[in-house]
């Protein structure tokens, strides 16, 4: 199978249609017996207790054009080698997003469900810690960049993926520890 048929990676401002993406992923491949798909959406609050005060009104997503696509293509190649999946589609939105909007789609086709479930989770764990995207939350109290989560590094580490994305020390401590 040609790589172009096997994997589709798109970064776009527009919304996506899960059904259409899954249909395209399965099209013409009689060896597919399982499709696993994950959709991430904009929720109203940041997950961390410290910031869960103001509801999020708008989420802004920035990326690194060129590198983002390459990083995701590399991770799909890794998933293909590791789990023997038949196909993958990754769509990630950028720009301003409203509450409840779809942010990201990872869909994987495989012969059996085990590989599909695992590859889908692997791809999301990789994307969360290795793909250059940044979220900025807008609330009534102002806007702030979302902090990376140590839990995401831990999730990626389960697969033996490079970690060290989230700060080793809390930002406040890092600032306090700086020489004058």
């Amino acid at each position: 199978m040609q790589r172009e048929q096997f994997q589709v990676v798109r970064i776009q401002a527009e919304d996506f249609d899960l059904s259409a993406e899954v249909a395209a992923l399965r099209a013409g491949d009689a060896g597919v017996g399982a499709v696993a798909a994950f959709v991430g959406t904009v929720r109203d609050r940041d997950g961390s207790a410290a910031q869960a005060v103001q509801p999020v009104q708008l989420l802004e997503l920035e990326h690194y054009p060129g590198m983002t696509e390459r990083a995701i293509e590399a991770m799909v190649d890794a998933a293909r080698q590791r789990f023997g999946i038949r196909g993958a589609r990754v769509v990630h939105r950028v720009g301003p997003l409203a509450l409840n909007d779809q942010i990201v789609l990872v869909a994987v086709s495989a012969a059996h469900r085990g590989e599909a479930f695992q590859a889908c989770e692997f791809l999301m764990d990789y994307l969360k810690t290795q793909a250059p995207f940044w979220k900025k939350e807008h609330t009534a109290a102002g806007a702030h960049w979302v902090d990376a989560r140590v839990a995401d590094d831990a999730a990626a580490a389960r697969w033996g993926l490079p970690t060290g994305n989230a700060p080793v020390v809390a930002p406040a401590m890092a600032t306090a520890g700086q020489p004058a």
């Binding site: 991430g40 997503l61 990326h63 690194y64 590198m67 990083a71 990630h92 942010i103 990201v104 999301m124 994307l127 969360k128 810690t129 290795q130 793909a131 250059p132 995207f133 940044w134 979220k135 960049w145 979302v146 902090d147 990376a148 490079p162 060290g164 994305n165 989230a166 700060p167």
Partner: peptide, 24 residues
Amino acid sequence: MCQDEQQVLSDGAEVAFFPPVTGG
């Protein structure tokens, strides 16, 4: 992604600095 700041740079290299990533 650079995992080691001892990586040697070449002329014309594109080097990006950014906060920890938070996509997905």
